[in-house]
Design a protein around this nucleic acid. Structure first.
Length: 659
RNA sequence: GCACCUGUAGCUCAAUGGAUAGAGCAUCGGUCUUCGGAACCGAGGGUUGGGGGUUCGACUCCCUCCGGGUGCACCA
């Protein structure tokens, strides 16, 4: 039962008298923004009155009179310029919340008709360690996947891994030249990662060393330019002065950019120069970057040796990724990477050439989309295919083989241009009617407001991030256990504490990520993430543990109560608002899906935990003399427990009964 | 230069065109002889970057200026 939808259905026939298409006005029936306006409000009278030249308050009154909600609402009131405020009947809430106790789906109706949705997320490169940048895609994608699936859609999660890219050239080159056999025998993935980083570092070093003088000259030129530039008077209204001001500003920002670039090149040089062994390697392999690219080209051309190496590397690389996903609790239905689509690429290009969509330009094969300056390059001048080609082939596969009607790409917002071109190209191609969505998200920032990096300026490894979260969580739990040792129950043993730490630590990371609106950048802050108070996973997990504790310590089995015919009654405002909050679970899921925003669900979950805590404070069980009321409160706790657990699980966050 | 995103309380962030713009943190002040105080309740704090416009109504839509970010032909 979705209360909001029910009310909207009641308004629909009445509003149909005032508009040919009542849908947008029906949608103006919504949860009340403030409890003093009741439980729901209808805002449709004002625009409709405007349209018909009527008095909005009178129209509101007329609508209120006509709409059949007497069985649902105890009060229907006109307020302000023409708001219709609705307050639900307590007996309705009571009936519905008791139904929820018997409902495995907690009131959430299955989507009808279900859609076939492919969600493309995480998408790391194999053989390169995952880093903090993969976290958002993984966490948001997984949550959307769980939520849409729970709503009854046919969801396929697909990890479009980078398993055919240039990193393999580096690894193969490293393998052929710098392999530590013992290390490879002991831990192949770690050794491959080391080789990747080494080759990357060496070629960066060589590039930096040759490129640095040019950059320095450029900087000098710009600085001279800046020194020579006339400074216009401040706050001048003269357009010429304004232009000069702008030019100065641009020059300054170019100089800053160059300085940053030079700094990072210097760092790359320093890194290798400070290590005699690596410096020797670099000098011995001056053409390493080119050589690595050649190894990639050979692999793509089907070179037997390189292909054999690729086949040798892949299983271990995939297993390593799987290890991270196991820890994050993320499952993929498919892992179809670049290599899998590789054989389809020539066909895609041929087809687009044949149908005239693609043309040759500067040696590259491109699709030009009107309104876009940049071309969509589907084959480079050197004959290699690009990720554009792969993405096209992938869409065709998903549409024709997986029968997808919706494809979601949970990918960094910086790739927006690419997806616009991709989607336009697909539209023009006309292979199928499919809803393509770039579910974009912002960058993870450090406290310095720059992209999150380690102190040395490296990207932060994902696994070390998880480790740190778990260690911090463990410290909190140990401190807490020490404090509450006299509470009567046995203390958690070491194994239990470790398990709880894993759940709290990783839950904290996921929640912090999910509770931000996805498209804004967000600041990664350990303290806030694992804080015990406030809008955090810990607070909610704690509320959940209390729902369990209440039943455990009062030695109550909810099923037994239900079998005995106990039911929820509302005797206190806190009970009413908690019950209503629990009934709003389906609404929360709907609002997640309208724009693929998991933060709508974190908000719901926080409000629910909050509502429960208020109830917990005001409505004791232990001291309550009335047995029926005692039982009712136990059932309310039980129901809260189930809703919290389900909602958290849709966020990919686990719960514990004791913490 | 072009394009896209962004600017909300001291800080981190919310708010499908709706009422007096909300949370959390921080600050200050309350609550406990009862089920887990990792809690609850309350207060202060805002010209939603500036200025125009559309609208009965604007943080939200349009224009413009200012500030911040990102992306722009063969990386993904």
């Amino acid at each position: 039962m979705n209360l909001l939808r029910l009310l909207q259905q009641r308004f629909a026939p009445v509003l149909a008298d005032y508009a040919d298409d009542p849908a947008p006005f029906v949608a103006m029936v919504r949860p009340a923004q403030d409890t003093r306006f009741g439980d729901f409000q209808a805002n449709c009278a004002m625009p409709l009155a405007k349209r018909h030249g009527l008095n909005p308050k009178e129209l509101a009154a007329k609508i209120a009179e006509k709409v059949h909600v007497q069985d649902l609402c105890r009060e229907i009131e006109i307020a302000g310029p023409g708001f219709i405020n609705l307050t639900l009947r307590d007996d309705l809430i009571t009936t519905e919340v008791n139904k929820l106790l018997q409902d495995d789906r907690l009131g959430v109706e299955a989507a009808n008709p279900p859609r076939k949705i492919v969600i493309d997320f995480s998408s790391p490169n194999v053989a390169k360690p995952m880093h903090v940048g993969h976290l958002r895609s993984s966490v948001i994608g997984d949550s959307l996947c769980r939520t849409l699936r729970f709503l009854g859609h046919e969801v396929t999660s697909d990890n479009h891994i980078g398993d055919w890219g240039t990193q393999f050239g580096m690894i193969i080159y490293g393998y052929k030249n710098f392999l530590d056999k013992d290390a490879y025998g002991r831990h192949p993935v770690a050794e491959l990662a080391r080789l990747y980083r080494l080759v990357n570092r060496l070629s960066d070093f060589i590039d930096a060393r040759s490129g640095l003088p040019e950059k320095r000259r450029e900087l000098e030129t710009k600085e001279r330019e800046l020194a020579a530039a006339p400074v216009p008077p401040k706050n001048s209204k003269d357009p010429a002065d304004k232009d000069a001001e702008k030019a100065l500003k641009r020059l300054r920002s170019e100089i800053d950019g160059l300085k940053d670039e030079i700094g990072s090149l210097s760092k790359k040089i320093e890194r290798v120069e400070s290590n005699a062994e690596e410096l020797a390697l670099a000098n011995a392999h001056p053409a390493i970057a080119k050589a690595a690219r050649e190894e990639t080209a050979k692999l793509h051309a089907g070179d037997a040796t390189n292909l054999a190496l690729w086949n040798e590397f892949m299983p271990a690389c995939l297993a390593a990724l799987q290890g991270v996903y196991d820890r994050l609790g993320i499952k993929f239905d498919l892992t179809l990477g670049e290599s899998w689509f590789n054989p389809m690429l020539p066909g895609v290009v041929d087809e687009l050439l044949t149908n005239g969509m693609a043309v040759e330009s500067d040696g590259a094969i491109c699709v030009f989309i009107p309104g876009f300056k940049a071309p969509f390059i589907i084959r480079k001048a050197d004959g290699a295919y690009t990720y554009a080609t792969t993405d096209l082939a992938t869409i065709r596969y998903r549409v024709s083989e997986l029968k997808a009607d919706t494809i979601l790409y949970v990918v960094d917002t910086r790739q927006g241009d690419h997806f616009e071109l991709l989607f336009e190209t697909v539209k023009k191609w006309g292979i199928a009617k499919v809803d393509l969505r770039h579910v974009n998200f912002g960058t993870v920032m450090g406290k310095d407001r720059r992209p999150y990096k380690t102190r040395d300026g490296d990207t932060v490894g994902l696994e070390s991030l998880l480790d740190e979260a778990v260690i911090e969580a463990r410290a909190i739990i140990d401190a807490n256990e020490a404090q509450k040792s006299d509470k009567g129950e046995e203390a958690l043993d070491d194994a239990a504490r470790q398990e709880v730490s894993e759940i709290i630590g990783i839950g904290g990371i996921k929640y912090a990520d999910l509770h931000h609106a996805r498209e804004s950048d967000y600041v990664f802050d350990w303290e806030k993430m694992l804080a015990k108070e406030g809008d955090t996973a810990t607070y909610i997990q704690y509320a959940y543990a209390r729902t369990k504790g209440i039943l455990r310590r009062n030695q109550i089995d909810p099923q037994t109560l239900l079998d005995q015919g106990a039911r929820i009654v509302l005797s206190h405002a806190a009970e009413r608002s908690l019950a209503l909050q629990l009934l709003k679970f389906p609404e929360a899921l709907d609002s997640v899906c309208t724009d693929y925003r998991p933060n709508q669900l974190t908000q719901y979950v926080f409000e629910t935990a909050n509502s429960f805590s208020t109830f917990y404070d005001n409505c004791p069980i232990k001291g309550e003399a009335d047995e029926a009321l005692r039982h009712s409160r136990c059932l309310l706790a039980e129901l809260t427990s189930r809703v919290l657990k389900q909602a958290l699980s849709l966020l990919g966050i686990q719960t514990v009964e004791r913490m």
